[in-house]
Design a protein around this nucleic acid. Structure first.
Lengths: 156, 156
DNA sequence: ATTGAAATATGTTCGTA
DNA sequence: TACGAACATATTTCAAT
């Protein structure tokens, strides 16, 4: 077992706290305390417990890429040569900032990546000049996301 | 143009602030201020500008689903009957908490969803009893994520 | 746009129940 | 666990540059 143990027990109060903070990481603990009728110190202590358990992985500001002109999201299935060691390809993908996610997957492809580009031209350039260029990449299949309807975390 | 305008100009200081907060949403503004050598009031004002522009979409606590026993992530390509109106299917998908993302996509499928399950059995149940059950769903293709290597936001 | 200072609010620790 | 009180920090506003 690594740092966080997996035998965490979370009760209804923990869930309430988490739901507030998953929605707004900067919501003051004291405000949450007033809302759910418990002291700030108690919440503080519970958060320390949840952090220690590894359930809370951190917090993030969420940026809206559209405002910066990034409007084209796509998934790309990548076929790798059998001889190719996948980790080497992943290391190359890591260097490409447009690649936001990368998964080893079962099924057709070796790897599935999610990318974010400014437009179709940008995506085409990414495919032809960057991804296809990676050693071991034999073929790709691209699926453009026309519209994302759902984007959320696990329900606590 | 909606509430946030798209003509936002962000400079190096904005980027530094954002990079700190994208990494840790609860990092105190005054700490950032000390790090980059600017007053807290100035950062406060810049954050208000960035919020008004729509670039900052909010903030979130990030939860590690593995700690709760959710270890099986998968992408599911969904074929819908031609007669089916996609929004109706999406409305059903929204009710399924295991569905974390949902995209209309070009290519083979009508819809691509990302799901998170406890294990393969849970995934199988989700597919057979929930997703395949949705009216208009004719066929699905499932790709299990064996390991996620990259998970990040856009590079600012 | 930036600053420092003042006022308000929050975060954090600790002794106690 | 939870609480309240005390102390340390942070947020927010504002007048001035």
């Amino acid at each position: 077992m690594k740092s966080g143990n997996e035998n965490i027990k979370i009760d209804g109060i923990d869930k309430k706290i988490l739901r507030y903070l998953m929605q707004d990481a900067r919501k003051p603990i004291l405000e949450i305390a007033r809302n759910i009728g418990i002291s700030g110190a108690a919440i503080h202590q519970r958060l320390r417990k949840l952090e220690k358990s590894g359930l809370i992985a951190g917090s993030k500001f969420i940026v809206n890429p559209k405002v910066l002109g990034y409007t084209t999201m796509a998934y790309i299935g990548i076929f790798l040569d059998k001889a190719m060691s996948n980790p080497v390809a992943v290391k190359q993908l890591e260097k490409i900032p447009e690649v936001l996610e990368c998964h080893y997957t079962t099924g057709n492809w070796s790897i599935l990546v999610k990318v974010l580009c400014k437009d179709n031209e940008h995506l085409m350039h990414l495919l032809n000049k960057k991804i296809q260029q990676i050693e071991g990449v034999s073929r790709t299949e691209t699926f453009i996301s026309l519209d994302q309807q759902i984007d959320r975390q696990i329900t606590i």
